[in-house]
Design a protein around this nucleic acid. Structure first.
Length: 274
DNA sequence: CCGTCCTCCTGGCCGC
DNA sequence: TGCGGCCAGGAGGACG
C-alpha cells in the first residue's frame, strides 16, 4: 500500500527517466481507471505532450506536461508504475501503457484496479478534491508542531483516525500511522483531544521520523509495493508493529496485538502503548 | 461540521 | 484438493 514514502521513492526512481520524454501514445486497457475526463479525452490531452517534471503531493503523483497539462495518478492500494525499455514486463495487470518513444514505456499496473488517473490543465486541478483539500505533509515547514497541536485540540475522534485523515495531514496511511503511534507509545484508540503536551510532542516527532525513515529505506515492501524500476524497499525490516502480530515488541518483548480501530486493522504493543 | 459506515476491487489465505 | 468466505485499506459518498 503506497503511502508518502513509497510514492516519493517511486517519484525519485522515475523522474530522471521520464523527464524530457514525449508521450507518443497511450493504450488504455481498463478505461474505468480514468476518472477525469473520459478515457478518450484523457488520451487526446496527454498524447504528443512532453513530460517536463514529475512531482508528488501526499500520495498523488503529478506529471507536469507541456502546455500546462497535468497527468495525475493515485496508486491507491496496489497500483504500480514502471519504466521499461522492452515489452517483456507487461502482464495481465498492466492496464495503461504510455509509449515514451525509442522502445521506452511507462506502465500502470494494478492488481485490484482501485487506482485512479486524471488529465487536466494545471488550472483545473481543483477538480481532484483529495488533492485540492490535502493537509500539510510531514517534514515540511507547514506541518509545524503548533499546527499539529491545533489539530488535537477539541477533537473527539480517535487519534488514529486523525492521523489517517488526508485533509489534516497529507501522506500517512495505515502502516506509518501504526508505526508513529508505536514509537510515541500511544494507544491508537485514544481520543485525539486526550493527548497531553508531552504525548503530542512525542507523536509529532514520531510522525516525522517514520516518514523520514520510510523514504530513507526506499519504502515498505509489505505486499505489492515496488519502485519505478521494480525494486523492493527495505523499511519492512525496521517496522515496530505493523504486520508483526504475535511477534515480540522490540522494546519490551510483549507480543504485538492486532485490533480494529477507526475501521482499520491496527497493530500495537499493549504494554508500551497507553 | 463531524464521525461512522459502506463501497469499490481481487489475490491470497484460512478452514472445512 | 477444492472451494466458499473473508481480509487487505485509500478515499469518496451516504447518512445521522
Amino acid at each position: 500500500m503506497p503511502e508518502l514514502p513509497e510514492v516519493e521513492t517511486i517519484r525519485r526512481s522515475l523522474v530522471d527517466k521520464v523527464k524530457g520524454r514525449r508521450i507518443q501514445g497511450v493504450e488504455i486497457l481498463l478505461p474505468r481507471l480514468i476518472k477525469w475526463p473520459s478515457a478518450y479525452e484523457f488520451q487526446a490531452l496527454v498524447t504528443g505532450k512532453t513530460i517536463l517534471q514529475l512531482d508528488r503531493k501526499g500520495k498523488y503523483l503529478i506529471l507536469r506536461l507541456e502546455d500546462n497539462m497535468t497527468l495525475v495518478i493515485h496508486l491507491r492500494m496496489t497500483g504500480r508504475l514502471y519504466f521499461v525499455t522492452n515489452d517483456d514486463k507487461t502482464d495481465r495487470f498492466t492496464h495503461i501503457i504510455f509509449d515514451l518513444g525509442d522502445g521506452a514505456k511507462l506502465l500502470y499496473a494494478d492488481t485490484r484496479t482501485l487506482g485512479t488517473l486524471y488529465a487536466m490543465p494545471e488550472s483545473e486541478l481543483w477538480r481532484i478534491a483529495g488533492l485540492a483539500s490535502m493537509g500539510p505533509e510531514p517534514l515540511t515547514q507547514e506541518f509545524s508542531h503548533a499546527y499539529f497541536r491545533g489539530l488535537l485540540a477539541g477533537r473527539k475522534g480517535r487519534i488514529k483516525a486523525l492521523l489517517l485523515n488526508q485533509k489534516l495531514i497529507g501522506g500517512l496511511g495505515n502502516i506509518y500511522v501504526d508505526e508513529a503511534l508505536a514509537i510515541a507509545g500511544i494507544d491508537p484508540d485514544r481520543l485525539a483531544c486526550s493527548l497531553n503536551d508531552e504525548e503530542a510532542a512525542l507523536l509529532y516527532e514520531a510522525v516525522n521520523q517514520v516518514i523520514y525513515d520510510g523514504i530513507h529505506h526506499g519504502g515498505t515492501s509489505f505486499r505489492d509495493y515496488r519502485d519505478g524500476e521494480g525494486k523492493s524497499g527495505s523499511h519492512q525490516n525496521y517496522l515496530a508493529v505493523y504486520g508483526r502480530k504475535g511477534q515480540p515488541c522490540r522494546r519490551c518483548g510483549a507480543p504485538i496485538e492486532r485490533k480494529e480501530v477507526a475501521g482499520r486493522g491496527t497493530h500495537y504493543c499493549p504494554n508500551c502503548q497507553r
